[in-house]
Computed example of a mutant assay.
Amino acid sequence: MENLKPLSDFFAAIEKDFRISTTHIAIYAALLQLRIGKGFINPVEVFSRDIVSIAKISSTYTYIKCVQDLNDYGYINYVRSFKKTQASKIYFVDLQGS
């Protein structure tokens, strides 16, 4: 159940945030799933192609836009890699107090 706490905290934080769409939620959940699969590390290194597949979205552009939004809104810290062979880093923010 401890693994669900970050997702619960995220839902509590976005409850009144009109900027968050279902795509943002799908991407955050996919990022969290990947993080759990990698032993709950922070940061997690990700390739957009992996998250696009898990989140069931069809566009890398949509992924980049939504991850950048989540970064700008303070839900994650996103360090983008512009190299196809190097993963980007996603730092999860503690949302418990949000």
Rank of each mutant, 00 (worst) to 15 (best):
F82Y: 15
V44H: 00
G39T: 03
T23C: 12
T62F: 00
Q33P: 02
I90H: 07
G37V: 05
A29Q: 09
R80C: 14
I14Q: 08
S81L: 13
D69S: 07
A87D: 02
K83R: 15
E15K: 14
D94M: 13
L7H: 04
D50Y: 01
L31E: 01
D69W: 05
F47I: 00
N71S: 13
R35N: 03
L31T: 03
D17N: 14
S48H: 04
L31R: 03
T23H: 05
S48F: 04
L31K: 02
T62A: 00
I54L: 04
I14S: 06
S81G: 11
T60A: 05
V44N: 00
Y73W: 12
I27D: 05
I25D: 03
S59F: 01
V67T: 09
K16Y: 11
N3K: 11
D9P: 09
S98E: 11
E2R: 08
F47G: 03
K5S: 10
T22P: 06
K84V: 13
S59Q: 03
I41K: 06
S48E: 04
F11G: 05
T85K: 11
R35Y: 02
K5Q: 10
R35S: 04
I76S: 12
Q68I: 02
L31Y: 03
A87M: 09
S88D: 13
K65L: 08
T62Q: 00
I51Y: 00
S58T: 02
K83E: 10
L70C: 14
S21P: 06
D72A: 08
L95Y: 09
P43S: 02
I76V: 15
L32K: 04
